[in-house]
Design a binder for these strands. Sequence first.
DNA 1: CTACCAAAAGACAACGTTGCCCCTAACTTA
DNA 2: TAAGTTAGGGGCAACGTTGTCTTTTGGTAG
Lengths: 330, 330
Amino acid sequence: MVTIKDVAKHAGVAFKTVARVVNNDPTVKPENREKVLRSVEALGYRPNRAAQMTRRKKSGVIGFIADELLRIPYTFDLIRGAQEMAWKHNRELMVLNINEHKYSLEAAVDHLFQHRAEGIIYASMYHRQVSLPDSLTQIPTVLANCYTSCGRFATVVPDEELAGEQIVGSMLDKGYRRIAFLNLDERIIAAQGRKAGAIRAFEKRGESLQNLHIESVIVEQDGQLISRARLAACEVIKQFKPDAILCGQDPMAMEIYFVLQSLGLKVGEDIGIGSFDNWDLIPELLQPSLTTMALPHYEMGRWAFNYLLDERTDVVASKLPFRLISRGSL
Amino acid sequence: MVTIKDVAKHAGVAFKTVARVVNNDPTVKPENREKVLRSVEALGYRPNRAAQMTRRKKSGVIGFIADELLRIPYTFDLIRGAQEMAWKHNRELMVLNINEHKYSLEAAVDHLFQHRAEGIIYASMYHRQVSLPDSLTQIPTVLANCYTSCGRFATVVPDEELAGEQIVGSMLDKGYRRIAFLNLDERIIAAQGRKAGAIRAFEKRGESLQNLHIESVIVEQDGQLISRARLAACEVIKQFKPDAILCGQDPMAMEIYFVLQSLGLKVGEDIGIGSFDNWDLIPELLQPSLTTMALPHYEMGRWAFNYLLDERTDVVASKLPFRLISRGSL
DNA sequence: CTACCAAAAGACAACGTTGCCCCTAACTTA
DNA sequence: TAAGTTAGGGGCAACGTTGTCTTTTGGTAG
C-alpha cells in the first residue's frame, strides 16, 4: 500500500508536510497543500488506521456486545442507533455477537481489550437482568436493555411502567372502559412494569380496578415460551367481557386477531386491541393495522453510545419512553 | 496499558522472549515460559492488535457492507454466518451499515481501505441487482444475495428456481393438483426464478400447466410495496378453485390465513398453504404452522467469508439451496 | 583444554504514523 | 542595521509490536 512517504516523494515535500495536510494543519502554504492533495489523489493514498492508532494511543474503538439469547428482529435497531453515532463521530463500532453455546462473553471482552476499546456497550436482546465479568469494570461500560444486580454499571432501559400507563391511559381516554391485559410471564421485568403502569393509569383517572383484568398468558417453562393466548382470549372475552384487549407483544396480538375473527368480532369496531413492541411487519400486516407501543431500541443505542462518547462516569439508570404508534385497532 | 516490555521487566527477561512466549515460539525454555506466563497473568497483559497489524502488515480485517434498503429481520443471519466464521479464523469482521440517505457506499469503502481490509463482503438485504464503485476491484470482493450487471465479482445467491421447483414438487408429491402461486412482483429476480421453477416441477412430472395459476400480487410502485394479496386470494379461490396456494413470502401467507378463515376454509385440511422465506416468528405463530422454504442467509454469509478466506479469485456465481421446512400447512 | 554446535535468548531495526523540537527565511520593530 | 517575531516546514524519536541477525550458554567430541 502507498504510504505517507510515497506521497511526500511524489509531491516533493517532507513526509511531515504530508501528515500536516492530511490532518488539516493550517500551517501549510496553500501552494504546498495543493501539491500534496494532488499527489494523494494521484496515488490513492489513505492513512493507515492501525498505524495511527499505535502512535496516537487512541483506538477510537467502541465495543458492542450483542447478547442474542432471543432473536428478535427489531433489536437490530439498537446496533444501528449506536453505529450511526459512531460513524458520525468517526469511531469504530466493533460488534460482537455472543451466544451461550459457541461465543462466550469472556472471549468477546478479551477481544475488545486487545483492540484497546475505549468503551463497551453490552446490549441484551430483551429487557432482563444479566451478570457480567469483573473485568468490565476496568473499562467504561454501559448496559442497554438490561441491568445487573450489582448496580455498578450505567444502564439504559425502556420505561416499561410509563409505557403501560401511556397505552392504558390512551385506551381509557378513547372511551374504552373494561380492559383485559394479556401480559407476558410476570417473572419478566417488562411484564411487571407494564402491569404497574396499567394499574396507575386506572388509579390516576379514578377508574375502578374492577374494570381491569390482568393475566399472564405467555409463560416460560424450561427455557421455552409457551403461549396460551388464544385459549385465554376466548375465556376472557366470555367471562370478563372486555371492550378492549391489551397484548403483551405484537405476535400475541396477531393470534388474538385470529381468535376475534373466528368469534365474528371486528377489531377496532367491536373491540379495541393494543399491544407492545412494534414488531417488524406484524403491526402493518394486520387489518386493521395494530396500535402498539414501539420499544425505543434505536434511542437506547444512541443513548449508550453518547454516554461513552461524553466520557461520563456517573452510574445512572436511564429510562427511555416507548413511542405510541396509533393505527386502526384502537 | 501494560506492554510487552512491562511484562519483560516483571519476568526478568528480554522483551523478545515475551514476544516468543505470546506467539507460541517453541524455542523458549519451559522454565522461562512459565515465568513469562505468570507475569502476563499478573499484569493482565494483552497484545495490542493495532501494533501487531502495523508490524505484521496484515490487518486481518474483512469488511461487511450491509445494504439495508429493506429491513428484513432474518437477514441478520447473513451477518452472523460471516461473523462466526471470522471469529473462528481469528479475523475481524467490520460491519458497516449503509443506506441511501445518510451513509454512503463510497464512505464505507473508504473506511475499509483505511483499515486495510483484506476482503469485502457486500450483502444486499433482498436478492437484487446492485451497482458498485470501481474501487472495489482493487480488493477481493464477494457479493452476497445480490449481483452486478458487469459480472466482475464473485457472487453467492439463493437458488430461486430450485426453490420454486422443490416446493411445488413437494406439493405435487403430496397429492395437491391445482396450485395457485401468488408471486411477488415479476421485476424481482426471485419472482422470476421461482416461477420458472414452479413450471419445471409441473413439466418434470408431466402435469398439465392448466393446473398451475401464477399471478403477481405484490407490486412495487414508487418504491412502495403494494399488496393485493387478500383480494387476489378471494378471486383466485372463487375462479381457479386451487387445492393449494403458494405464497411469495410468509407475510403474504399470513394475510391468506385471514382470508381463508373468513371463508371458513381450514388450512392444511381444506386447502394447503406453502410459502417462501421462513420469516422470523410468522411461520410458527400461524395455526397450523406454515410450511415454507427457508432462505439460506446463514449459509450465504459463511460461503462469502470462506471465499475470501481461501483467497479465491475465480469469478463464480454460486447458488445455494433453500431449506424446505415442513410444518402443518401442507 | 579447545573447537564446535545447537539451543536459547538478546539486540536492533522496521512497520506507518504523530508529537516534539528546531531550523530557515521573511518580515517587523526599534 | 540589529534584534526579535512568526510562518512554514524539516528532522527525528516514539508508539508496541515482529523479523532478522547476533550473542550467549551449555554440552559434547576430539
